[in-house]
Amino acid sequence: MMTLEVLCARFEGLDPEDLRGWIGAGLLRADAEGETLVFQEIDVERVRLILELRETLALEEEALALVLSLLDQIYALRRRLGES
């Protein structure tokens, strides 16, 4: 479990406002402990994926949300199929 500051500092040049935007848009999950947002390791990788889609693959915000949603569906189906 880590706070927003710790998560943010794991990535160079990542603005906390970006993180909040992604949470608000439903791209990234967080858990609330009182007034504090906390994150898990899987969320760190989620941020890395979002950054790669945005920077390496140059996806715009709307395309990015679509790609993430398709990926989530694919991985959910793969987990149900029990493949690896």
Partner: peptide
């Protein structure tokens, strides 16, 4: 992460 059980966190 997504293929492990914890991937359910982002299961639509």
């Amino acid at each position: 992460h997504a293929e492990a059980p914890e991937g359910g966190r982002y299961d639509p």
